[in-house]
């Protein structure tokens, strides 16, 4: 694997994870529990789409095969996506959504903080910019997890269930392969083993405040590095890619 091949994959990982979570956020549009949250979800989605565009465009530039951000978003199949498994988890109820978003925004928050000093200028700029946005996403989801966890008996038990259900997808956030190995040597990528303890601290702090119990690690799902996904991604793509597939090259 060449450095450029690894870089393309790395950018797709970052770009795809933002894109897929952005699409999940968009699914809340007009379905939010209250108007303010409906707007919040759409705004978070917008940030994520913006972040994704930067990375997918850059992936296309390095690859040098004239693929645009739109080609990457709309003309790939499940196995060609490298988003982490957590980002594709269905929205479920509002508690499921905010717990998933907490796990993900705590991950990107710590990752982007470190990536801001990547030796790759585009990735460093992307990370520094995105960090400002995910800081708000992290605060938003953390406050909701506390409100629901430390809320009523019912909201507590539902949110604990969300934490338990999503836990098996957390290990995939820290999985690495030869892409990481190559890019860490070049000071482009970050060793995710450095991110894990930071993520643990943030998650433990939030769960404790929320009176929720951190689950024990047992069976953990993995596979996103090789494009192995759950069936949820296929359903998501079917909706997201419908228009460009039905009307190729359609323009606004």
């Amino acid at each position: 694997m060449t450095k450029n091949e690894a870089l393309v994959k790395y950018c797709l990982r970052l770009g795809d994870s933002s894109l897929i979570l952005g699409q999940r956020m968009a699914e809340w549009c007009s379905n939010g529990p209250v108007l303010e949250e409906d707007i919040a979800m759409s705004n978070i989605g917008l940030d994520l789409f913006g972040q994704s565009r930067t990375m997918l465009t850059y992936a296309g530039e390095i690859e040098g095969k004239d693929r645009t951000e739109n080609d990457f978003a709309f003309k790939r199949l499940e196995r060609e996506f490298f988003n982490n498994l957590m980002s594709e988890r269905p929205n479920g109820h509002f508690g499921d959504t905010v717990v998933r978003n907490l796990f993900l925004s705590a991950h990107t928050y710590h990752l982007y903080k470190k990536l801001s000093s990547s030796s790759d200028n585009t990735i460093a700029a992307f990370a520094a910019k995105s960090l400002k946005e995910v800081t708000y996403h992290l605060r938003h989801s953390a406050e909701w997890v506390v409100r629901l966890g430390d809320g009523t008996k019912e909201s507590h038990s539902k949110t604990q269930q969300s934490v338990n259900d999503l836990w098996e997808y957390t290990a995939d956030l820290f999985a690495m392969n030869e892409v990481d190995e190559l890019l860490i040597k070049e000071n482009i990528a970050i060793d995710l083993n450095e991110i894990k303890p930071l993520w643990d601290n943030t998650i433990n702090e939030v769960l404790e405040r929320a009176t929720l119990t951190r689950p024990e690690d047992s069976f953990m799902q993995k596979g996103s590095l090789n494009g192995m996904h759950s069936e949820a991604l296929g359903h998501l793509l079917t909706e997201m890619q419908f228009l460009p597939r039905a009307y190729p090259d359609a323009k606004w």
Partner: peptide
Amino acid sequence: LKSQFGSTACKAL
């Protein structure tokens, strides 16, 4: 503060 996300991404309510 009523909501961290207002009428646009750059504003809170």
